[in-house]
Design a protein around this nucleic acid. Structure first.
Lengths: 211, 211
DNA sequence: CGGCATCCTCTTTGATACTG
DNA sequence: CAGTATCAAAGAGGATGCCG
């Protein structure tokens, strides 16, 4: 892309990742960790392969990612974030929080990929941590499970299961998100989710009780 | 722009302002406040007038800005941010902080506009507030002056002068920025700036003392 | 003047096909 | 698997014209 050529830090940051797809490539690397080319392509439905190759080249030149030739028996190139690349996480989080708070829910034709789910869920919870720290919430969907871990450090989510969650929320991914994002008072079961465990915990999420 | 059509909040936020120039239009409205078309064009050197008109239309449709027909004798349309539009400030700040922290200083041919200066300065100071609150720092350049106001609320900057600053920093805008962004220990005078007042204050800015 | 719309050229994308 | 090649369509940049 042509540089804005402005001395403003915002414009100069946009010179680096203002291109279409660039921030989403970084999102994939942040969520998936070191990834192969085809894994990235899969996580970015609709991207032209030439565009992906171009963005990876630019990001490497900017020092945000590095490519590594994995040793045998893997024998493939892995793209991974550098320290500077990992520093874009706050940008993705701030963007995502805006989207989570200010946009209506996506249309029914929107692409859904499970590996986005824990990250998306964390965006709805970011902001204030519950009072009774620490809290572990298990999310279970037909296509996979994730864990929300809340402690004084903040909110962290990851794919997988935990042995003794304080609370379990079950439902289709979009319904779980809908439930977590709901600003109305939580009920035990609504819009396709069921909740099991210490339901009172939910009252500790200011995001769930009041905006 | 074509929608990414992904259920991820990041992608959906980018559907709204991922277009070239869009975030910079919002930056201008945030910095300048309600603005006329030509004021925006002036603050966005290089933008094609058709592109500006298009972005303003999109932003209005997305509900981020509104146009207001100012009453006589002004008799011009003013574009201003809505509540939702003002909510993009954290995005611009996060982007700008990344740029401030991770990019080299801009080349000598980069466009400089004074009204960006206080905002840019605040990006370098964001993060930690000094111990001895509140602090008022006056910045003076040949092309204008600005005030940095630090209190428990955070760091705020605006164009103008104050009567009794704790500290005054004088120099060309880029040198003042360079001085504020310097991670090395501050000296009383270096690289084209002079400092007057309670120099010890600078030691309270963690950003100025150590990254 | 202020707020665009039009026309033109150039660059970027999206889609598909193909290759070491 | 990790791209490159090709080509049509969309978008950006620049100049100019128009209308209250």
């Amino acid at each position: 892309m042509k540089s804005y050529n402005q001395s403003c830090p915002v414009a100069r940051a946009l010179d680096v990742f203002g291109d279409r797809w660039t921030l989403l490539v970084l999102r994939e690397l942040l969520i998936q960790g070191p990834s192969r080319y085809t894994d990235l392509a899969r996580g970015l439905p609709g991207i032209a392969t030439s565009v992906l190759a171009d963005r990876l080249r630019q990001l490497e030149e900017s020092g945000l990612i590095r490519r590594e030739l994995a040793p045998p028996p893997i024998a493939t190139t892995l793209f991974h974030l550098t320290e500077e690349g990992r520093a874009v996480e706050p940008i993705l989080v701030t963007l995502g929080r805006w989207g989570a708070e200010h946009l209506d829910k996506p249309g029914p034709d929107a692409e859904v990929q499970f590996h986005w789910f824990p990250f998306a869920a964390s965006l709805y919870l970011h902001g204030h941590a519950p009072e009774g720290l620490p809290v572990v919430i298990q999310l279970e969907t037909p296509v996979g499970s994730a864990v929300i871990d809340v402690n004084v450090e903040g909110v962290r989510t990851h794919i997988g299961t935990t042995t003794s969650p304080d609370l379990t929320i079950r439902g289709a991914p979009e319904n779980v998100i809908e439930f977590l994002s709901s600003k109305t008072s939580p009920a035990e079961s609504r819009s396709g989710v069921t909740v099991e465990g210490d339901v009172a915990i939910l009252a500790d999420f200011p995001y769930l009780v009041a905006s």
